[in-house]
Amino acid sequence: MIDHSKVQKRTTADIAKRIVQDIPDGAHVNLGIGQPMTICNYLPADKEILMHSENGLLGMGPLAKEHEIDEELVNAGKQPVTMLPGASLCHHADSFVMIRGGHIDICVLGAFQVSVKGDIANWRTGDPKAIPAVGGAMDLALGAKKLFVMMEHLTKSGESKLVMECTYPLTALAAVDCIYTDLATIAVMPEGLVAIDWVDGLSFEELQELSGVPMRKLGK
């Protein structure tokens, strides 16, 4: 039995900081709406990381403070943001040329499920009453050179979000490169999932048990 009280789960901020470690200096990065947007709060001063917003902004700065708000300067979640020196604006087709043309180095998206093959489901749960909304997720999932997923490891009812096959409608096939959760960092390799690191208080065997899908340890 896993002693959940000993598992030192990562907070959202911890996951964001872990992801930032894997973003190299000079990278062009797009952050999906939801949890991934918090990553911009943890960008280190010693790296120059250029943030892209799908609505036509490259060189996005932090969220706008009260006196900085311009309602015509927003991020993908429609929140008022700022621009860094060197920022550029473009129209939507050019913005998606950056995404679809493979010019964005890394995109971080949230997800409902990720399969062992790197398939991602993140836009609808199939609930007939829910309003489906896809936004830029399908373009980002395939267009960015690398796709990172930031999500809770388990659903609220304790089921693993890592699955053999996604049961929710797909966003993209074989797109995910690395998964960052509150429990672990897991790479999607051609041969399957590889656990890079996991939190204190949790053994690799326990991580495997909670995940419910085959995975191996890095280097083994």
């Binding site: 799908e54 939507h92 087709a93 913005s95 998606f96 995404i99 679809r100 489906p132 909304a133 896809v134 936004g135 830029g136 997720a137 399908m138 373009d139 395939l142 267009g143 409608p169 797909l170 966003t171 993209a172 096939l173």
Partner: peptide, 29 residues
């Protein structure tokens, strides 16, 4: 419902006199 980049490109194509285009976005969904 249209993926955002596909929406932008469909409009761009319309304006550019292009009948359509092939894209990986959305394949298998």
């Amino acid at each position: 419902l249209v993926p955002q980049g596909t929406l932008a490109e469909r409009i761009r194509a319309g304006g550019a006199g292009i009948g359509g285009f092939y894209t990986p976005t959305g394949y298998g969904t």
